[in-house]
Design a binder for these strands. Sequence first.
DNA 1: CGACTTTTGACGAACGCTCGACAGAAGTGA
DNA 2: TCACTTCTGTCGAGCGTTCGTCAAAAGTCG
Lengths: 394, 394
Amino acid sequence: MRTSDVFELLRDGQPRTRAQLADLSGLARSTIASRIDTLMKLGLVAPYGGGVSTGGRPPSLLALNPTAWVVAGVDIGASHATAALSDLSGTILVERRADLDVALGPDHVLGWVERVVAELLADQRRDPRDLAAIGMGLPGPVEHSTGRAINPPIMPGWDGYDVPGHVQRAFDVPVLVDNDVNIMALGEQHAHLPDVADLVFIKVSTGIGAGLISGGQLQRGAQGTAGDLGHVAVARAAEVLCRCGNQGCLEAVAAGPAVARSLREVGVDAAGSPDVVALVRSGDPRAVQAVRQAGRDLGEVLATLVNMINPSAIVIGGSLADAGESLLAGIREVVYQRSLPLATQHLAVTTSRAGERAGVIGAAALAIGHVLSPEHIDRAGALVVEAGATAGRV
Amino acid sequence: MRTSDVFELLRDGQPRTRAQLADLSGLARSTIASRIDTLMKLGLVAPYGGGVSTGGRPPSLLALNPTAWVVAGVDIGASHATAALSDLSGTILVERRADLDVALGPDHVLGWVERVVAELLADQRRDPRDLAAIGMGLPGPVEHSTGRAINPPIMPGWDGYDVPGHVQRAFDVPVLVDNDVNIMALGEQHAHLPDVADLVFIKVSTGIGAGLISGGQLQRGAQGTAGDLGHVAVARAAEVLCRCGNQGCLEAVAAGPAVARSLREVGVDAAGSPDVVALVRSGDPRAVQAVRQAGRDLGEVLATLVNMINPSAIVIGGSLADAGESLLAGIREVVYQRSLPLATQHLAVTTSRAGERAGVIGAAALAIGHVLSPEHIDRAGALVVEAGATAGRV
DNA sequence: CGACTTTTGACGAACGCTCGACAGAAGTGA
DNA sequence: TCACTTCTGTCGAGCGTTCGTCAAAAGTCG
């Protein structure tokens, strides 16, 4: 069948003529035509304006049609949840956010997810059958291959729960689940496209975690616990006891609650990340200093990370990242001093481009990556051909 | 063509009958038969003893034939070089080692390589055309995609040199080049097969470097400099000046020369790693203590690495690794204390299984991975079919 | 030793994919 | 308006792949 290899040529979003596709693929124009036909039946490819005539009939430009299907991206946090609908280019069409305690358990939370996704579909006047896949992020360790949470610390009732199974009773589509920080890393990668094969996303809020994208692939590690930065040792935390029971953890000095605590110790009233951020924005020098120091502590760990996995971008997100340049300055200060020049010469250290939406964008990207994979396209193409279907039903 | 998907079923080395292959692949027995025929013409698959009859004609077992082709694995060190011939299972058939200064330049060194590989082929009475590919490791940063060294510190004359181009004038086969530590990581992965998708190899000798295999893939990073452990900061080195010009580098306290220096400071005569290892083996308590401390320093960095990329095995190699358990004990002491239980519960910290041969085994594995890739197999299969060739010539 | 069972290799039919050709459509330029 | 150019879509021919069948081969079992 190999419908997918023609699709791959259009995957970059650039419109092309049939002749160009034939040249690029080496196939005959008529072969291209029949495959384009399949893709147009699926709705994945659509005419894109008219081409410019060179003296004869003008060619028709063809391009990926991002509106063929929609996917849902869901970001479950500890105390809130966001669900969004996205087209196939990763553009968020509609979004809904709610306060929702993950501790209410999977039945309650997934019930909300299913209800809201159905509402969003209705809102967009899309047939539920236009939904091609669902991506979801959970605030704890997830076994990506099965979509189950494993020993999550803050999610009572979720351990080993079959999340895809539950959701698929409502929507019979692929459900991809991953850790929320991994999801956010994917979201940032999407915001930095094209050409970011090696990106590290750091989330600094109540805890500290990282999502690692290396060689274009999300790295999950042997037990799926890769990216656990929070409990790496840093010098300044040597005497500080962490909630994990160990001493010296990064999280114990650089996460939101730790920075707030350090401010309280010098008489500033701050309860958590939001207070700290507000103080920094108001220009409070003690808060700026405290955040910058947290950045240095973080930078100590990131310098090691840079030497080891040599990313091209480090993106800082999470609630404390809203403190902006103060945090970045501390990080850069240490990273550029402690890492090798070769590794840092093209390294960008920035705050999140996707912001609060990183999670849902990444969840949608995970779903899109699945449905636009060659295997999925070929499967869908074979179905539409054999059925002689009239529209993009799969 | 898709000869490769049948080959993939035999890739694990297990012999199977045609009927089993048909079941596994879902193809008809007759289809399997014709593909097996192609693979047997290539020599890649051969009859493997006889099967057990279940009442009728006994089936013939088929298995991958590792002797169909040979590959060369070459490990270039700073002051010595090793070249080996390997069959397709990664078994080293013959090996030659020589003192050879890499600073003599690419012409001299690659001349040696080409001469020795030709000799080894003659030694094994293999036709030079049986050579399918060459894998090579160089002691410095390498751009793997082009096979060129980039800004190598200890390889004058090699910067930007087209290594594959030179070698291919002597042997017209694919030439894969990589960093020597990456190559050794591949060698260890081969020695730990099956099922080591996440392995970190650490080489401790004059310097300290790491080869990272994550998700089954060698991770090279954005500039190809991933795995640079030597210049990560550790607490104990804070005041020590490193050859890189920075202070606090791991290498400055835990590499071979650093350990030797620390011994000289307490009056023990030791020039480098070999002396240190000899002293440890003789039971000198000061040397044991010094090596163990180097292990602790290393462990500090590795604990961070374990939390971040969550490998299933850490393998220690390089000349200082010959000091054995003393070094490992120091590493384990810190890693198991500083890393999260979830990440360490299935973590193995061991010395190299492949030992001095890790480099050539890994270089051979790199070459084998290339020639047994589906693309290469299909290309070779198409050639043998269209040519109606009589033997496994490609 | 002969009947039976199971595998093997060969063969021809069917199928699907790919290609080139051709007629029609949609513009340009005189 | 007409000749010319270029693109589109359809169609039949050709080709390779895949499959089922069948006779021969190579065992087991009574």
